[in-house]
Computed example of a mutant assay.
Amino acid sequence: MAHFPERRSLSRRLKPYFTVFDPALSLILFLLLCTGLVTLSSAGHDFPGRLEGQIRNIIAAFVFMWAAAIVPPQTLLRLAVPIYTFGVALLLAVATVGIIKKGARRWLHVGVDIQPSEIMKIATPLMLAWYFQTRAGILNWKSFAVAALLLLIPFGLIAKQPDLGTALLVGGSGFFVIFLAGLSWKALGALFAAGCAGLPVAWSMMHDYQRERVMTLIDPTSDPLGKGFHIIQSTIAIGSGGVTGKGYMKGTQAYLEFIPERTTDFIFSVYSEEFGLVGNLVLLFLYLLLIGRAMMIAANAPNLFTRLLGGSVAMMFFVYAFVNMGMVSGILPVVGVPLPFMSYGGTALITLGLCSGILMSIQRHRKLVQT
């Protein structure tokens, strides 16, 4: 009697594509996105369509996250070199034929205007994780020197555009891969000393507006109605929130339009004014949960490539949150870094969605290996 293979139902065939999400990480992201939408509805009260636009951005980010979660880490390993090479080629194209907007050459027109530097936020740690995976067991100082060169190429091209905020994010994500790969504390100390010694050179290479941002950080009251206005109004909003905040949609700094870029880079000021210290502690706790879950996934990853990549993504979340809150609070220069999963914007949200999807892919692959 002939036996025919059992035909699986459509739901069973589709199930693997919808069980790729890590429950804990998904819950944390959901809470952060809901918090962001609530804050944005208040901050963008006089920006018609801003809330609806962010919902569309979240849907797009979800699609990218889902796609990244489906792709196995082995495929990412094979794609690391092509993606990095393609990204660097685009950065070189930007440097030669890129579009200049507001004094910066950051965009490339390919039917639509794209910003290739965003690709390098993922391509750089991906490339470095691939490199250390291929050098596993034979790491020496030359290995770290080559890794540093691979990092400096996109960092230098992005900083030259100039786009210091994105350059710092790319540099940070790549540096964490190098550090997690086993960079010694002695080497780290030497790099810190060299960085301090090179500060005068770095200062001389900065653009005038970048120097002004640093000086404004030191003393924003030197130009309270000009370059220091943003920081002064932002810190006033944060401080006026007190312990429990003024209440939802009751922030005077936001509604009187004193807070600049209040739906994007400075959305934390609006949140702080309305929800106060208690709300800030809740938000910080959510970010700690996000970073902690990402680090847990990285620590349990099955090989060096996925451990380095997962650890870099976790620290990328940290850098995003720390730099944004620091610049809005007046302890870091303003560099145009959004608050992750809170600030309005499609490009950054898609990048963060891809990073979250990579973490879910790593976690899913570990479970498949165990079973």
Rank of each mutant, 00 (worst) to 15 (best):
352 L>M: 14
198 G>L: 12
306 T>K: 08
2 A>K: 08
344 Y>K: 14
123 A>C: 02
44 G>K: 09
328 V>P: 10
282 V>C: 11
253 Q>F: 00
108 L>N: 01
310 G>C: 04
6 E>P: 06
369 V>G: 08
213 R>H: 10
94 V>D: 02
329 S>L: 07
36 G>D: 00
50 R>L: 13
221 T>Q: 15
221 T>W: 15
306 T>N: 10
73 P>Y: 06
315 M>H: 03
16 P>L: 02
319 V>W: 08
301 A>H: 09
79 L>Q: 06
2 A>N: 07
183 L>G: 03
28 I>N: 02
116 P>N: 00
172 G>H: 01
242 G>D: 08
250 K>T: 02
195 G>I: 04
203 W>P: 11
137 G>Y: 03
95 A>P: 01
125 P>W: 00
228 G>K: 07
215 M>L: 15
26 S>N: 03
278 V>D: 03
205 M>F: 06
198 G>R: 05
41 S>A: 14
155 F>R: 01
126 L>S: 02
264 T>E: 00
223 D>A: 12
245 G>F: 02
153 I>M: 07
271 Y>F: 14
257 E>P: 01
232 I>W: 10
283 L>V: 04
351 T>K: 10
218 I>L: 15
40 L>G: 02
316 M>Q: 09
16 P>R: 04
317 F>C: 05
90 L>V: 05
7 R>D: 11
140 N>E: 05
230 H>F: 07
307 R>F: 10
30 F>P: 02
281 L>K: 09
210 Q>G: 08
107 W>S: 09
144 F>W: 01
146 V>H: 05
132 F>Y: 09
1 M>R: 13
98 G>M: 07
74 Q>C: 07
311 G>N: 06
239 G>C: 04
358 I>L: 15
309 L>Y: 00
335 V>K: 10
273 E>R: 03
40 L>Y: 05
273 E>Q: 06
112 V>D: 01
89 A>M: 12
107 W>C: 07
259 I>V: 06
276 G>Q: 07
254 A>L: 04
276 G>T: 03
156 G>F: 00
53 G>P: 11
346 G>T: 06
99 I>V: 12
77 L>F: 15
200 P>E: 06
201 V>T: 13
201 V>E: 07
359 L>R: 10
104 A>E: 03
83 I>Q: 12
332 L>C: 10
255 Y>V: 00
42 S>M: 10
6 E>Q: 12
188 L>A: 13
305 F>C: 05
85 T>A: 15
62 F>Q: 11
263 T>W: 01
227 K>Y: 09
369 V>D: 09
219 D>A: 11
274 E>H: 09
327 M>E: 06
29 L>Q: 02
193 A>I: 11
205 M>N: 12
38 V>I: 14
118 E>L: 05
246 K>W: 00
339 L>D: 03
338 P>L: 09
151 L>N: 04
229 F>V: 05
357 G>C: 12
259 I>H: 04
97 V>H: 14
45 H>S: 11
14 L>A: 11
77 L>Q: 13
34 C>T: 11
274 E>W: 02
49 G>M: 11
276 G>A: 08
110 V>F: 13
190 A>L: 12
322 F>H: 05
270 V>N: 04
